[in-house]
């Protein structure tokens, strides 16, 4: 009887450990949260992605509709080729929509905002958006500002 109780407690301990591991995997690192959703992939090329990272959000009107899957350099055009995973239930993004890399707050994370176009035709798996707006790089902005202010003199 004593030994059975002991085994029960040890079993509970191990189960608790596995439950905590599952919690860390699913809730904290979001392992299955993203992959379980059906997605389709689209692409876009940017002149400058600034600090955009993998798994950054893609949002329409502030609502998350997907995330950045991969970022590679397009060696022919010297542009950043970004692949997005868009949730499958958002199927009606017009093909002339434009993408912009935005920042959440002054110091916040980078995300990609989608401005909806006017076409009747919608993006499908493997589609590409051509109208892209680069990330605002603060240094460029400042140097532009200084250049313009010295030109005025």
């Amino acid at each position: 009887m004593k030994s059975k109780q002991l085994e029960l407690m040890v079993g509970l301990f191990v189960v608790l450990g596995f439950a905590a591991l599952a919690y860390l995997a699913i809730q904290v690192s979001g392992l299955s949260g993203a992959s379980s959703k059906d997605v389709y992939q689209i692409q876009a090329r940017f002149d400058d992605i600034g600090g955009l990272t993998q798994r950054a959000k893609v949002s329409i009107a502030g609502v998350t509709v997907g995330e950045v899957d991969s970022i590679v350099l397009d060696k022919e055009l010297y542009m950043a080729l970004v692949t997005f995973n868009i949730y499958a239930d958002v199927q009606n993004i017009p093909i002339d929509s434009s993408l912009a890399i935005l920042t959440n707050g002054l110091l916040g994370e980078k995300y990609v905002g989608v401005s909806i176009g006017a076409e009747e035709e919608y993006l499908i798996q493997g589609g590409e958006l051509y109208d892209t707006q680069s990330a605002l790089v603060l240094e460029n902005l400042i140097s532009q500002f200084l250049f313009e202010s010295t030109q005025g003199d």
Binding site: L21, L24, A25, Q27, S29, G30, G33, A34, E109
Partner: peptide, 12 residues
């Protein structure tokens, strides 16, 4: 934000 920055294969 937590899920974006935590990677199971490295951090956990």
């Amino acid at each position: 934000l937590m899920q974006q920055s935590v990677y199971f294969s490295t951090d956990v």
